[in-house]
């Protein structure tokens, strides 16, 4: 929060380390020995075709799924050895396209993120309410506080779920397809906001995105994944800065699509040929 030094890539402290993660669903192997090191405070995007295991990887990092083998470390600690409360205090997760059948107000939804701080036989106190209101203004949805969650737009719901993860006061924020179901304007605004949060609060962001151009524009680093095809090649095609990772050759081997890079006013864009 007080660490807004802005520019990416200045500090090299390790935020998240993934070591040799493998997972199979039934007999289909989804992830095979994936290892990654993610710098603290950086925005890292996982991209790749459907079924490449990016959502699975995100869920493994948040311990929603247990890998067959491999370990995940956050700030040097093995997450499999953490209590559920401790994990929820350092890691927030924003699921994809969330819905609920009850018309909870936005504030009631967001405050559930305080769960790891509220003792079992208790309800959220003044401190929790204060933190909730702070995050609502940080995300600039305080005007929606008392609206029914079921009656706001998809873009607003996405922001509410981000706010819910932020009141956990995490050092790592995981987002699964934060732009799906959003219109063009909301996609850009949400991605900008995610970047802003990461920079102003020194939060490590790991998200999955469908659009490689969004990944290039809004990430410090990109991890390009592919589906396992059984010929021994691993999931990670490339990882590193957007320029290094998203080359036409790498895109081709991940998606099987020919692209060329177009330079628009100093910005690189991927265009399918």
């Amino acid at each position: 929060m007080d660490d807004g030094n802005g520019g990416p890539g200045i500090r090299d402290a390790e935020g998240v380390r993934i070591e040799g993660i493998s997972l199979s669903y039934g007999c289909a192997k989804i992830l095979d020995g994936v290892s990654l090191a993610i710098r603290k405070g950086s925005v890292v995007t996982l991209v790749g075709p459907n079924g490449c295991g990016k959502t699975t990887l995100l869920k493994i990092i948040n311990r929603l799924l247990k890998p067959d083998s491999g370990r995940v470390f956050v700030d040097g600690s093995d997450i499999s050895k953490m209590s559920t409360h401790r994990l929820a205090r350092i890691m927030g997760y924003v699921p994809q396209g969330h819905r609920t059948s009850f018309p909870f107000t936005v504030k009631e939804v967001v405050i559930t993120g305080r769960m790891p701080y509220v003792p079992a036989f208790s309800t959220p106190g003044k401190e929790d309410i204060k933190k909730t209101e702070q995050v609502l203004s940080l995300i600039r949805i305080d005007r929606l506080s008392d609206h029914a969650y079921t009656q706001i737009s998809g873009g607003e719901r996405q922001l509410v779920m981000i706010a819910r993860a932020m009141v956990q006061e995490p050092s790592v924020l995981l987002l699964d397809e934060p732009t799906s179901y959003l219109d063009f304007r909301n996609q850009i605004q949400t991605l900008k906001l995610i970047r802003e949060i990461s920079k102003s609060r020194d939060v490590t962001v790991i998200m999955t995105l469908h659009d490689p151009n969004h990944a290039m524009m809004f990430s410090d680093e990109v991890v390009l994944l592919r589906r396992l095809n059984g010929n021994g090649a691993g999931n990670v095609v490339a990882s590193g800065s957007p320029e290094d990772a998203m080359t036409p050759q790498n895109i081709k081997s991940a998606y099987g699509v020919e692209v060329e890079i177009v330079d628009v006013k100093g910005r690189r864009l991927l265009m399918p040929i």
Binding site: T84, V109, M115, P124, Q168
Partner: peptide
């Protein structure tokens, strides 16, 4: 009655509840 707020957390979905640290 003592656990009633936890029902709010649970009512938002199971994965959502687990991701905020609910057993």
């Amino acid at each position: 009655l003592a656990l009633r707020w936890r029902l709010n957390v649970l009512a938002l979905g199971e994965e959502e509840a687990r991701s905020v640290g609910m057993n």
